[in-house]
Simulated assay, not measured.
Amino acid sequence: MSAPSSVRRAAALWIFAVAAGVFETVVAVTGILASGAFPAGAVAVGVGLRLVVFGAAVFMTLRLRAGDNLARLGLAVLLGLFGTLSLVVGPVQDLLAGTFTLPAGPADWLLAVSRAAHLVAVLAAMVLMFRPEANAYFDRRRSAISL
């Protein structure tokens, strides 16, 4: 049984979100290493952690497309909820504290645009994963497995 278009589009958006996250990591690490703000070891640990998250996201996305409801729930909670919070908490805190500023240079603008696209992709994927045809697909897959 083939995944409905809403699930296929959600999977494509999750992959886009991962790609945006990789891009953001490259831009941020390039800036951090150029500034010498953090030791290279600390940067490597951060990059390693992100690579684990990106790998898990791709794995869950592939499982989502195959009809694995647990992957859908994992994506929704781990990346849809907590991932979204990680993208918006900093800017919201800056807004509330009155310290929010617009991006200063080209790298900052690239990062801001990528984060905005990343956030839109995640939110759209969340909606698509729970559309009626997606719910029916996951219900049919669950029923077929339990037989």
Rank of each mutant, 00 (worst) to 15 (best):
A28R: 15
G41R: 03
A124P: 02
P106A: 15
V29M: 03
A56D: 08
V92T: 01
G46M: 05
F82P: 00
A124T: 12
V22K: 15
P106W: 12
L147K: 11
G74W: 11
L51Q: 13
M126Q: 14
L96M: 13
G74T: 08
F16V: 12
V53P: 01
A117G: 14
A117M: 10
M129S: 07
A42V: 04
A37Q: 03
G80D: 00
E24P: 01
S114Q: 04
T101C: 05
S114R: 04
G83C: 02
L13M: 13
G67T: 08
A117H: 15
A44C: 05
S2W: 09
P39Q: 06
F23K: 09
V120Y: 06
V47C: 04
S5K: 11
T99I: 13
W14K: 06
V92S: 01
V26D: 05
S114N: 11
L64Q: 02
F23G: 10
R65C: 13
V113E: 02
L79F: 13
G41S: 08
A11G: 15
A37M: 06
G41P: 01
D94Y: 07
L62R: 06
M1L: 09
A20E: 11
A116F: 14
L73C: 01
A134V: 13
F54A: 14
L87H: 00
L102Q: 09
V22G: 11
A42F: 14
L85Y: 01
L87F: 04
G74H: 05
G83A: 03
A66I: 09
A112H: 10
G41V: 10
L78V: 14
L147N: 14
M129H: 02
G83M: 01
D68V: 13
A71E: 14
M126N: 06
N69W: 15
G90L: 05
P103V: 13
G31S: 10
D94E: 14
G48H: 07
F138M: 01
V29H: 04
A136F: 00
